[in-house]
Write a protein that binds this DNA or RNA. Sequence first.
DNA 1: TTGAAAGCGCTAACAC
DNA 2: GTGTTAGCGCTTTCAA
Lengths: 338, 338
Amino acid sequence: MTSTMKDLAQATGLGLATISKYFNGGTVREKNRLLIEDAVKRLHFAPNEVARSLKTRQSHVIGVVIPELSNAFITSIISTMEDLLRQRNYAVIVCDCRSDARQEKQAVEFLLHRRVDGLINMPTDPSGAPLRPAVEADVPVILVDRLIPSLEGQVSAVVIDNVRAAEKATETLIASGHRRIGLVLGDPGLYTTDCRMQGYLNTLKAAGIAPDPRDISYGNYTMNGGYQAVQGLMARKDRPTALFITNFEMTLGGMLALQRSGIRVPEDVSVIGFDKLDTFGDVFPHLTLIHQPQNIIGRECASLMLDLLSDSHAVPHRVVTLATQFTKGTSVRSIKGD
Amino acid sequence: MTSTMKDLAQATGLGLATISKYFNGGTVREKNRLLIEDAVKRLHFAPNEVARSLKTRQSHVIGVVIPELSNAFITSIISTMEDLLRQRNYAVIVCDCRSDARQEKQAVEFLLHRRVDGLINMPTDPSGAPLRPAVEADVPVILVDRLIPSLEGQVSAVVIDNVRAAEKATETLIASGHRRIGLVLGDPGLYTTDCRMQGYLNTLKAAGIAPDPRDISYGNYTMNGGYQAVQGLMARKDRPTALFITNFEMTLGGMLALQRSGIRVPEDVSVIGFDKLDTFGDVFPHLTLIHQPQNIIGRECASLMLDLLSDSHAVPHRVVTLATQFTKGTSVRSIKGD
DNA sequence: TTGAAAGCGCTAACAC
DNA sequence: GTGTTAGCGCTTTCAA
């Protein structure tokens, strides 16, 4: 069925090497070029990437290991990354490890066996153990969204400035006179959770406000979790006058909880939410938001990977820290007493 | 760096073929097995899947082409599919074609060049043109979620019974006395849109209710779209007494619109929504729902593909139609007059 | 510029 | 059971 370069050589009367050169950007006599192009059409030839991979020792495949495919933030990043990579003829194999460190390890091994040229990983295991074999095999690794201290200098990374983002949100709230700020976080122990909490605490401290543990709630980065967390925070008598919710799903859930309890934003409580995602659109157009530029993160990953691939040893590993964006809405009300 | 079977042969003093057989489930003398296993450890050997692919003419890669990675319904399916496939040592290359037929065509070609063993496609182009090359190359194709009439018999498919699902929802509403039922659909012309509308119309007709075009609204399958559609439907004086919203994002948006306008469910309007998705959890626990079993769809795709792969010519192409599930909540109120 | 030939790492006859 | 050998389809010296 499928024809090979050998067939092309035969059909054109040219040598195998000439055909190969034609496909790899070498100079071929005009006459022969035409000859080849004609034969390609007639024989429906398409180069066999597998054979090429074997020979060049480059699979032109990038492995992507993530904790959860069903997460809009993640897919949003992968989507632009995949697009860019594919344009450069790199395929992306995605492995969803369901936030399980063992599965993550297996996924990396699976990909290594397939001789991926590079690995992009939003890590589940904070120890970095699953990535060890990749580092040893000298396969370039890019961490996304979460850093792994023990791998410093051995891998690249693309993250956002979580601490600064949380500081910004908290500062904004404090500047509006709020002193009791509810914080809704993801799971404790997660890199982003810790950073965002840190930013919150930094700012509170700087403002001379003693943090109240009851104002901090964990919503598991899910819509349901956000719903419950906000409900819990707002059920108290001395409830916060403002909320900072630190991811998209939880923001959605939190807003829903507020609406359902008849708590108005910003009249009854000020809110700063997190992230914007295309499929969900602007259902809360008035919301003040911190958001991560998913497309830039994706683009950065892709180009960083392409860089590393072009010259793995010349390019030192680096950590790209991206700023978050701030969208001012009308969900924060000033309660400054004066 | 990486060692080869040749290295193993050398290290063990065995022949290449024995090593190969060991890895392919052949019988090897106990003593030699140990010898090999020891060498594998020492040399960190892992079979080169690329070379294997070249030889066996099986890439052990499945290509997946979808209209949008940032869609929770789609990723939910892919997630279970990928899991199952990877367990069987198949890798999944995902291509997001951004609902663009030209990109879809390119994606299929891209995958074909990489010699994927099979293709799973949630088609954007209803003509089936992008898949033609795959069919001609005898690469098994599975359509998901949407059928393509012109490809009948040449490809397999996994879909849900959209017509029946919409009938069920509409019937439920009618049985509760509703005669004015707002319908929120995806883009016109999409397979699922058409089917769901058909089910709605069938049921209305059977009940002797003349459909009112003003009760049908298109929400683009997005949260924003659902928000606006519901808002539009409910803004009318003679607004519907019930709504059937036909996907997850739109249901979310629609519910939000209702909450924000202070329209109570089910007191002021009855609602049947669509789909459940894990990351979003049960934020509307009281909602009556039609939902598609994403995990079953994914599993069905994976096993169908494995079937086709095991014996491509013996297994005829087939269309698997899955029933949707119905979750009765309390969002439908009976307004039967008596 | 072109062609002949070697070989990437593996599998599968085939003979032992 | 095991080893020898011939490719899979391609790239890449090296000579012409």
